[in-house]
Design a protein around this nucleic acid. Structure first.
Lengths: 223, 223
DNA sequence: ACCTGAACACCGTTCAAGT
DNA sequence: ACCTGAACACCGTTCAAGT
C-alpha cells in the first residue's frame, strides 16, 4: 500500500502552446480511462475507485462525474475499448490468411489468446461482474460493440462451414462452442488459475497453442 | 432497493429445547454463509457486504469477525463449499457410468454445466475476482480443495486415455483444454452473456448438450 | 467464548456554488 | 462548460469493553 501522502500529482499546467500534454483542462476523460487501465494492470483487484482515479489525474473527486455518469459507466467505457481492440486482433488474423480458412481460424483462436496475454486488464472488465447483463441495463454502447465482436466470430464460422472445415449446423450455436473454449482458456489464464500447475518456462505458450488447435477440433467437420 | 428501515430480523430467540433453529448463540458461522449465498443469488452484483450479512443474521456488524478474518475469508469459505459440491456432481457422473468411459466423460461434462445451472452463485465466487490467485495468498483451504477438484478431472482424462477415447499426451495439458471449454461455457451462461442471442425456450439446454459433446470432440483420439 | 459500540479511514454520489 | 467543497449515506476493520 502506498503511503497516504502522495506527491500531489504533477498537474502539468503548461498549456502554453498546442502541445496536448496537459489534459488538465481538455481531455480529462481520456486521462481517467488511461488511469483506470493502469490501476487495473497493477492492483488487479477491484479497488478501482473513482476518487483514486481523480487523485491520479490531479482533479477533485467529483470531477469525473462531468464525463461519466457513474463508476459503472467508466468501467463500461473501458470494456468498450477492449472489445474494439479485440476486434482489431481478429481482423489481423483475417488479414494474415485471406485465402486459407483453416489458417485463418487457427490464427483467430491464437489472436484471442494473444489479446488476453497483451491486455489482461481489458479482458477482466469485459467479462468481469462489473457490468450486469440483466435485461434493462443493455442500453450502453458496450453491448452493441460486444455483440458486433461475436458477430465477427459467426462470420468466420460460416465461412469455415462453407469450406467444409467446420461441421454444419446453426452457425451461432457452433460459435458458442468456439467462444466458450477460447473464453474459458483466456479467463483462467488471466486469473492465474493455471499457476498451481507449476508450469515451466514456455510451457504456457504450448498450452495456448494446444487450446487453439483443440478449439478447431471441437467443431471440426467429421471426414 | 429495500427501504432503509428493515423489520429488525426475526432473531428467533426460542432456544427452549434441542431445536437447532436459533443460531443466535451457536452456529452464526453457518448462518452467515447461508445469508451470503442468498444475497449472491438475488443481488448478483458485488454488494455482498459484511455489515449487511450481520444485519440479516440479527447480530452486530462486528460479530462476523469472530468467525471470519475478513470479507475475503468469508467469500473463500463460500467458494470452498462450492468446490466440494462440484466434486459431488462429478462423483455422481462416475457412479452413473462405472463401466463406460465415454458415458462417464460425457456425463461429467454435463454435470459441470448442471452444477453451474443449479448453483450459479457458487460458481461466481469460485471463479470471480474476489479471491486472488497470486502467489503468497494460496494458504487458504479453498486452494487445496480447488486443486483436488482439478485432480478428479485429470483422473477421468487418464482413464479415458487408457481406454483410447481421448488422445495421448500429458493428461494435465489435456485436462486444461477440457476445463477451459466447460468453464467458459458455464461462466458465460451464468453471467447471462448468451441472453443477447434471444434463445427460445429450451434452446439453452440444447446448447449445453452441444458444449458437452464438443468438449469430448476437442480432445478425442483420432481414429 | 462470543458479542457490542464507538471510532477510523475509507467509499460512491449529490448538489449548491464557483470561474 | 467544466470544476470544486461540503455533505450524505454508506463501507471494512480495529479495539476496548461488556456478559
Amino acid at each position: 500500500m502506498p503511503p497516504p501522502t502522495k506527491p500531489a500529482a504533477p498537474r502539468t499546467t503548461d498549456k502554453v502552446k498546442g502541445k496536448p500534454k496537459s489534459y488538465h483542462h481538455g481531455n480529462l476523460r481520456e486521462a481517467l480511462l488511461e488511469a483506470g487501465l493502469e490501476l487495473l494492470r497493477r492492483d488487479s483487484a477491484e479497488s478501482l475507485g473513482l476518487r483514486e482515479l481523480a487523485r491520479q489525474a490531479g482533479v477533485s473527486r467529483t470531477a469525473p462525474y462531468r464525463h461519466f455518469e457513474s463508476k459503472e459507466a467508466l468501467i463500461a467505457a473501458i470494456a468498450e475499448q477492449g472489445f474494439l481492440r479485440l476486434q482489431d486482433y481478429q481482423d489481423e488474423a483475417r488479414r494474415r490468411h485471406p485465402n486459407d480458412v483453416e489458417a485463418w481460424f487457427l490464427e483467430g483462436a491464437r489472436q484471442y489468446i494473444r489479446f488476453a496475454v497483451d491486455h489482461p486488464e481489458h479482458l477482466k472488465v469485459m467479462f468481469g461482474p462489473y457490468i450486469s447483463h440483466t435485461p434493462g441495463h443493455t442500453d450502453h454502447p458496450v453491448y452493441a460493440v460486444g455483440n458486433a465482436t461475436f458477430g465477427k466470430l459467426v462470420e468466420l464460422v460460416e465461412t469455415a462451414q462453407r469450406a467444409g472445415l467446420v461441421r454444419a449446423g446453426d452457425p451461432v450455436e457452433v460459435s458458442v462452442s468456439v467462444w466458450s473454449m477460447l473464453h474459458g482458456f483466456a479467463m483462467l489464464m488471466v486469473q492465474k488459475q493455471f499457476d498451481f500447475l507449476q508450469l515451466e518456462q514456455g510451457r504456457l505458450a504450448a498450452l495456448a497453442e494446444q487450446a487453439a488447435r483443440d478449439t478447431l477440433a471441437a467443431v471440426r467437420a467429421s471426414p
